[in-house]
Design a protein around this nucleic acid. Sequence first.
DNA 1: GGCATTTGACCCTT
DNA 2: AAGGGTCAAATGCC
Length: 327
Amino acid sequence: MARSMGSVEGNNGGGLVVTELSHIKELVRQLEVHLGGSHDLCRHLTTQIFTITERSISIITSSNDRKRAASDAGLASPLSPAATPTSDVTTDGPFKNAKKRKVMEKRSHRVRVGSAGDNPVDDGHSWRKYGQKEILGAKNPRGYYRCTHRHTQGCLATKQVQRTDEDPTLFDIIYHGDHTCVQRSLPPAASRPEHNPDATSLLQSLSAGLTVKTEGLPAPAAADPAQGWSAAATAAAPFYLSSSTPASGCLERSPFSASENNWGVSPATSDSYLPPFDDVAEWRGRNELHEVVSALVLAGAPPAPAPPAVDGLDELLDMDDIASFFA
DNA sequence: GGCATTTGACCCTT
DNA sequence: AAGGGTCAAATGCC
């Protein structure tokens, strides 16, 4: 069990995602009706959500069609778990022994860097490199990254980035945990739309409708305050919309530099970036959805204590699944 | 000076 | 003991 949304691949998980997205569409439509002409920002956001959701559905639909065609032709997906060296990272079960090193949820994404090799790519978060190791049997070293906000906000998200042997333009990325760092550039309270109970209710419904499929994930660790987010991320709990999305303080510079010896590094000075997906529009759509939903929550929801952060859309929209569409 | 990266050493798990 | 993950001092850049 390498990825919590592994069910998307190889079965009807894509269909489930489409169902969930359709649910979002319906809720957004209702939300729009409730907003009834007021709150231009909210209307704009709902329109965007609607558009992006539709786009996501079409992406997934066409991806499934392609997979089916490839399967019929007897082709193995280059992104299938068997082809990913890191796909078995959690097969042992991380909680066999309480003394073992803390093991966080891992998600493996293989990322293809764009053909413009000099352009860095961004996965929407800000990373700081803290180590690099030569890995036995691998031609390329593995880079270790943690969230830039680890110390300031206690964000425990980390990732490992390794160039694949077979294709230097491909990276295997293992994500450990999710970002808990919070939005740094919230819009001023005065500029936010008034709190709208109807919108709030609908957004809560929207949130409740988004669930993270976590079948097969290890049980959450003991109640460690620092890992509350992890427990939420691994339990079959409702997907919480948090402000720790790419609209957050995590959204900064590229975690990838395509320079030959410094790949995967997050240069603080790079001004342009490419997403870790071949299709920029797709990546942008996904992040827009993150952004828009977060903004809506901020606009409509009461300032309740920040719920545990989960990359809900990462879970909902399996990135391997989507990336394979462009492979 | 502050921040990020590099890299050898150390620690933990198997 | 080997391999992988993290730490922290050294170094570089802005």
